[in-house]
Write a protein that binds this DNA or RNA. Structure first.
Lengths: 207, 207
DNA sequence: CGTCTCATGTAAGGAGTTACATGATTTA
DNA sequence: TAAATCATGTAACTCCTTACATGAGACG
């Protein structure tokens, strides 16, 4: 259900084709919400049918054409309403922690690989989000520039700050995951090298 | 795909009916992986057909009967193999941060409500996970006791430690989300009360 | 002339949600 | 005997994934 609101959010800036939107999803929105084009095109048609968007066929080259979608008043209202509706939190479904809970079933070397992959994944994410914030701050983020150009000046600051705040939250989350992964590596080592504690080893002196 | 491995994980302890499994999902595994019974029953039949489980009809009362599922050698092997396979990270799809990125579209009071709900949700989660850790440590967690009883003593420590580690990770994540939510509340306040900075206010003295 | 980008789909299937539906057994 | 618990499903639907498929335009 969020897909359509991600699309509406982008279309509040300017009309776009499905292809434009798919590209935005890859480059910017994907860091928060991913969607493949096979999902975007049908959803756009559906939204047009429901009156949230209008579809306009515009020529492209001599023989080609493309469909440009423009948000309608109803689309804007739907987006605003979504923004003013409390979120429902999805039930937990977390493969990483599911696996972690049964890590004794993995070879210690594989357990460590899981943690290393976790750390690397979240370091990569943290980097992407940090780049995103840098682009927001230094004015090189194209979508933000367009959005600001279309907005009232007194709204500029909140538009910017909320986006930075969003990515800061994702960075904080990534850092928590990195720390957890590092603690995991230590734990795996300590469990592999330490003799079992619940069965004291009987040495000649203690017997 | 993880559903079947969550089921296999539970069935490594003892044979269970679909109902047993659905209950475990609600009480313990659900804190990591949720599944409704309408998904569990068909999946069990499918797994039995694939040879990961055997299904045994056992009588229950005078007229009733129930189906008990037992993990097979192949089932154990499949679980172990999953545990030794690197995870693929799903693409980001995060409604909370999607919404946060466009928070200027929400009424300030609603924006604050979003943040408050976020904080409350994660405080609740943190509490549940803390209770889970307490139960693991003090021996009142039934599943853990059964699992330990079925395991070699030298494995007890790692079985326990990995579970605690898992829930500690979830608690850390919840705490990060709580902090982010609190910062969000501050940000919303500061953006509502502070005059816009990009347009200096021209007072008589500065004019 | 080839390759990259732009442009738009379909089709099959897996995963998960929500709602509906039924009946036996145990326990208070 | 009523209510709670045990037990097991189906059906319709949404959302998402993966793979397959096609063709025009721009650029070098």
């Amino acid at each position: 259900m969020s897909l359509r609101f991600a699309l509406l959010a982008l279309l509040t800036v300017e009309p776009m084709t499905g292809y434009d939107l798919a590209k935005r999803f890859e480059s910017s929105v994907a860091f928060v919400w991913h969607a493949p084009d096979s999902q975007i095109y049908p959803e756009l048609r559906k939204m047009a049918k429901e009156g949230l968007l209008t579809a306009e066929e515009i020529p492209w080259g001599p023989n080609g054409k493309k469909t440009q979608y423009r948000i309608t008043i109803e689309g804007r209202a739907a987006f605003k309403q979504w923004m003013n509706t409390p979120l429902e939190y999805a039930r937990e479904r977390d493969p990483v922690h599911l696996k972690a809970a049964y890590l004794e079933w993995a070879e210690p070397s594989m357990a460590k690989q899981h943690m290393q992959a976790h750390i690397e994944y979240h370091r990569m994410r943290r980097g992407q989000w940090a780049d995103m914030i840098a682009g927001l701050r230094d004015g090189t983020n194209e979508m933000l520039s367009k959005r600001l150009a279309a907005a009232a000046p007194q709204d500029h600051r909140r538009i910017l700050e909320y986006k930075i705040f969003t990515y800061q939250g994702l960075i904080a989350r990534a850092e928590t995951e990195i720390e957890w992964g590092l603690r995991g590596l230590e734990l795996i080592d300590s469990l592999s090298n330490t003799p079992p504690d619940d069965q004291p080893i009987h040495t000649p002196s203690s017997a």
